[in-house]
């Protein structure tokens, strides 16, 4: 293999599900940071643009055995992203220097093949002309370009913030290929410190340790997509959330004592 393959950063995220209370701060901060438009009130819920989407699930039991589980799902920034090779117009690319899967809205022609390809439902389509209630354009973030209708979009680990961090580094005279430290909006916003972010190739980064944490799991790892978002939970039942439903069922037959979901 090429010597260049392991140069550059691999920004990665770890989300501690034991700390997440489903407050939604990450979703709001993400929408504010990334100029995500508010769809018209009549719009179907499933047409929203939620780059960070906190899903609510449970252990499959009824009260009083019921336990809620909140799973924040940003784009998983897969190393072998299913969405990259399907895009006919080269609007999705893996940045070798950061490991971030970039989406170029200005290139996208809106065929939505990438959305069909993504198993995490982390891609969104602008069904509407993005509009803001009157005056609200004043609150748009100048570091992030607003998108137009008819294009796909998704989380990019706050590319605007990465650019700002790089500008700062350049202004301080640091070398251009140096890996800069920054945090995406959701990481900054989480009031419970549930989200960790950093370069997983940097052995000193907490990400490097978290990836080896026994509580760690990834979503649908068997698909081989190589997601860069790691989830953490001490609860084996919560860790099963990362598997396909089949594995949940199998797991339940193996551990019938805790009575997880039956077939």
């Amino acid at each position: 293999m090429h010597a260049t393959e392991n140069t550059g950063a691999r920004y990665a995220m770890a989300i501690d599900l034991d700390k997440c209370t489903g407050c939604g701060a990450c979703m709001v901060a993400c929408a504010v940071e990334n100029n995500v438009a508010v769809p018209p009130p009549a719009a179907a819920a499933n047409r929203g643009l939620t780059w960070m989407a906190v899903h609510r699930t449970d252990n499959g039991q009824e009260w009083p055995a019921h336990r809620p589980v909140f799973i924040p799902i940003p784009c998983q920034q897969c190393e072998h992203a299913p969405c990259i090779h399907v895009c006919p117009v080269t609007a999705v690319q893996l940045d070798e220097s950061t490991g971030i899967v970039g989406q170029v809205p200005a290139r996208c022609m809106g065929c939505r093949y990438c959305m069909a390809a993504c198993p995490y439902h982390a891609r969104y389509f602008n069904y509407f002309d993005p509009t803001w209630p009157e005056g609200l354009e004043e609150t748009l973030n100048p570091d992030v370009a607003p998108r137009m209708r008819g294009v796909a979009e998704k989380c990019n680990f706050c590319h605007g913030r990465l650019d700002r961090a790089r500008e700062r580094a350049a202004a301080e005279g640091r070398p251009a290929d140096e890996v800069v430290a920054y945090v995406p909006a959701c990481v900054e916003a989480c009031p419970h410190g549930a989200i960790t972010f950093g370069d997983s190739r940097d052995p000193a980064s907490p990400m490097a340790q978290l990836a080896r944490d026994p509580r760690a799991f990834r979503l649908l790892e068997a698909l081989g997509t190589g997601p860069k978002v790691t989830y953490l939970s001490a609860d084996p039942a919560v860790r099963r959330v990362g598997l396909s439903r089949l594995d949940m069922v199998r797991g339940a037959t193996a551990v019938t004592a805790d009575g997880a979901e039956g077939a």
């Binding site: 939604g24 979703m27 709001v28 929408a31 504010v32 995500v36 508010v38 769809p39 009130p41 719009a43 819920a45 929203g48 939620t50 989407a53 906190v54 899903h55 609510r56 803001w132 209630p133 609200l136």
Partner: peptide, 10 residues
């Protein structure tokens, strides 16, 4: 408005 969005979409 963004909270209204949060409510609708999650």
């Amino acid at each position: 408005p963004v909270l209204a969005k949060l409510g609708r979409e999650s």
